[in-house]
Amino acid sequence: MNLKIVNISKKFKGFELKNIDLEIREGEFFVIVGPSGSGKTLILEIIAGLLEPDSGEVYGIKNKKIGFIYQDYMLFPHLNVFENIAYGLNIRKIDRDEIKSRVKNLALKLEISELLQRNVANLSGGEKQRVAIARAMAISPDIFLFDEPTSALDRNSRMKTREMFIKLHQKTCSTFIHVTHDFEEALSLADRIGILINGRIIQCGKPDHVLNSPESKEIADFLGYKNVFGGSIKNNRLNINNLNLIVPIEKADFAYVAIRSDDIIISKKKIESSARNSFFGEIENVFKKSSIYEVVLNVGVRLSVDITRKSFEEMDIKMGDNLWATFKVSSLKVFKH
């Protein structure tokens, strides 16, 4: 049965959710992504039944077992690793031998067998996380809820954790609802994502689709679009600072257009091609990133362009150089607000 969140609103301790509607399919890996303070944890706690919404309802949750993994794992400090994992089983008054064998089995799967008698305070971040997952898995949940589970980890462990989540999802066939502020993480995990900003889900869909078609400036900003321009459009042209941008819609009193930094080509000579937007300008700034360079070109407006390190070196780009920037009309995204 699908999980249906219908028109949920809630105000709680400075956070607010406004009219949230979501349908999450059984077995789906759904990621709610949004900046911190957007109310992500609140949604999870409402789904888990830990908080009553002010209005609205959650359907398809009754009698479902929930595995809730909080950001800082919430391992019970007065219990050791074994007792933590066994907690949900002890509550269910399961036979002691059965508990022992189940906990051992889970520990084996999550590679924490040697930690079972350890005090939880002395575990590393990654170990704590695996213990928390084992504790949740012990009750065989129908739905896993993950509250920013990777934010306390270093980059390396974060990558490993993502792999583990994908495997876990495949093995358990449970529904996964995961919240994060990291869009990249959402991209690598999700079947579908929902973008939560200021207490509203403002876009929902497959990750690639959302990434390529943001529906508002807010979303484009959140997704890291650096080239977003607003203005009125006439005859397929958006005029900003005397620059005529050819855009895919004919007319609008006001609209935003956005283009991804890696959809722009830069060249020393003007390129003769089907791409209809071509502008000449000076390089104002260059930022070195891990595998790419971000070049800021002033063509009347500042355009941020990502190029590979190889092209950067081959073109022998320097600050103050004058270059052409070219992009297709079809790579421009247009939205009204």
Partner: peptide, 29 residues
Amino acid sequence: IDERYEKTAITLGATTYKAFFTVSLPMVK
């Protein structure tokens, strides 16, 4: 004591009473 310890216990199947006696109370010993 972070309230989320109790909430975690509840999601693991504990009643409010059970969560209090098995989690909160031992933690304030």
